[in-house]
Design a protein around this nucleic acid. Structure first.
Lengths: 181, 181
DNA sequence: TACCAGATGGAAATCTGTGTCAAGGAGAAT
DNA sequence: ATTCTCCTTGACACAGATTTCCATCTGGTA
């Protein structure tokens, strides 16, 4: 990430804390930095694990609380896919999403032209105050398309096997990590 | 809801069941009817509570299973707001959403002109197969706008009090109903 | 430095959702 | 109508994600 951009974000965060009379604790600083460094969409638990490496005494409760606070301040945004854990996204500029209907992968799209011309119908615009919008594209990612085709043919090729194993690992990982404790 | 539309939906559901060799049980019929009647976006647990009034022996497991099945058949769609439970929506045509950032209310918008001209950039369109898209408008609903203004003035008026109480009830209701069991 | 509102840590509770399995019921065959 | 079979259901246990509660601690300020 661009260092200037990163510094600007940290300063924005510090300013918002001052304005709201919030204490600048190590926990808040570290958790903010971790989310700001990421370009994927970590879950609260993933952020907690990462933060704990720098701050061994950190509690899960605090990680959740701080992330909620950051979302409230508007320095991170929350994203979700149905049935899965909330994910936190440092991207505060307008962006859109690709959501795979099968494996639930979530990909950001930044493209200014994309939302051009999108505006709320006048009737709703009077009562609802729009801050921003985002477009969700639902469909199939490349790997899931390959897999669907293979299934139709009644065969399974190696790359699809790999993708499926990846899926299973991903779904099981939360449980495993948790049960270690 | 328009009775003709409602009947058409029921028939579509019945047809899909026949096609897939699925038994037409009371549980499936009742749960489908409940979702189809609603214009808000009930959670699985809310659907379960409503369904139990008509079908006292219904189990929660079945409610979840049937809702999942309905989503799989495509007669309802799943929607989500970050951190909250999955919501079920009988609307299967293309539609968009207003999402209140404060109270998380979710409102449907059906307006064909709205998504006109929206298309995925060519680079992504090659690898990602788009089935549909929806636009989420984030902002403040009318009630939350009033409340925000009142807070700034340091006053709280009656209508805002009512909205806040509604919010609290809504958030607490699951817990209360659950502990009765 | 002393104070205190606000923040944290840790345990427990809650909410949402899934896995398992015996028992029940729908639909086909007789 | 009866039987058979397989799909469904209900009950329970469990898992993951998140929140609540409360005692303790700490950053900011007088």
């Amino acid at each position: 990430m661009d260092p200037a951009e990163r510094k600007a974000r940290c300063e924005r965060f510090a300013r918002l804390c001052r304005e709201r009379g919030l204490a600048r604790t190590v926990q808040r600083r570290v958790i903010f930095e971790i989310v700001a460094e990421r370009t994927d969409h970590p879950t609260a638990d993933q952020v907690f694990e990462l933060a704990r490496k720098r701050l061994p005494g950190l509690s899960r409760t605090t990680a959740y609380r701080v992330l909620e606070l950051l979302a409230d301040l508007g320095v991170v945004t929350k994203a979700c896919s149905p049935g899965a854990a909330t994910r936190f996204d440092p991207m505060t500029q307008r962006h859109h999403h690709l959501v795979c209907l099968r494996c639930e992968k979530l990909v950001d799209i930044v493209d200014e032209r994309l939302g051009r011309g999108v505006a709320l119908p006048a009737a709703q615009a009077r009562s609802f105050q729009v801050r921003d919008f985002s477009i969700h594209f639902h469909g199939l990612c490349a790997a899931c398309q390959r897999q669907a085709r293979a299934k139709q043919r009644g065969t399974v090729d190696q790359s699809n096997r790999a993708h499926q194993r990846g899926l299973e690992r991903q779904r099981a990982s939360g449980r495993q990590e948790r049960s270690k404790r």
